[in-house]
């Protein structure tokens, strides 16, 4: 466990809790893409199939349970409890445009043609693009609440920190995971424009507005 990976996981947990906090305290899913959260659910379920079969550490298992349960809770809040506040008209990204390619790529590029490895690869590829509906929604609505911006910053930072972790592990352990690294780089690059807006606007106390 490198420091970068721990920082990355904590940033990930922070993001997930920030989102739940925002929806629960404002009792509103306004500005939040339900589709992105649905796809994160798929990401965790398809990636952690080994939750009950392979035990790595208490930390590993705890985080897996946390990620799965928190993402299910988030989807429940958006699509059921606070359904009336869900802004479906601005959450128009076609999920199949990312789910199908991720599945096809997983059938082509995987570490073994087994259900588990294909499911894992699908999960890695899907996670790389799952944020697109949310980023799309922010550009469509033209702005994001501050706490939503902080959520996106924490979420984008988690995989960026994982990239530092992968560099660290390659340097010290001499091996790397091509699928995870490739997808992780794509995932982090997709946040590029958001990171720019975050650092030039939100940090200075201004609202995150996507300039028309």
């Amino acid at each position: 466990m490198t420091l970068f990976r721990l920082a990355g996981d904590l940033s990930h947990v922070l993001a997930i809790l920030l989102l739940l906090y925002k929806i629960w305290t404002t009792k509103s899913a306004a500005g939040i893409s339900g589709k992105t959260q649905l796809m994160f659910c798929m990401v965790y379920v398809t990636r952690y199939l080994d939750l009950f079969t392979s035990f790595i550490s208490v930390y590993n298992s705890t985080m897996k349970v946390l990620f799965i349960s928190a993402s299910v809770a988030t989807v429940y809040l958006i699509y059921f409890k606070f359904k009336a506040t869900y802004d479906g008209n601005h959450d128009t990204f076609r999920m199949e445009f990312v789910i199908v390619p991720a599945l096809i790529l997983a059938l082509i590029w995987n570490y073994a043609f087994t259900f588990f490895e294909i499911s894992w690869a699908f999960s890695i590829f899907l996670e790389a693009v799952a944020i697109l509906p949310q980023l799309f929604m922010v550009t469509k609505t033209g702005e994001a609440e501050n706490i939503t911006s902080h959520y996106l910053f924490a979420l984008g930072s988690y995989r960026a920190l994982y990239i530092l972790n992968w560099i660290d592990r390659y340097y010290f352990e001499g091996h790397w995971d091509p699928i995870a690294v490739t997808a992780g780089i794509v995932q982090t690059v997709l946040y590029g424009d958001f990171f720019y807006l975050y650092f030039t606007r939100v940090i200075k106390g201004r609202k995150l507005q996507v300039l028309p």
């Binding site: 996981d9 590993n60 073994a112 490895e117 994982y162 790397w176």
Partner: peptide
Amino acid sequence: NDNAPSKDEL
């Protein structure tokens, strides 16, 4: 199989 990198990460 053994060439699959370890799945010790989240």
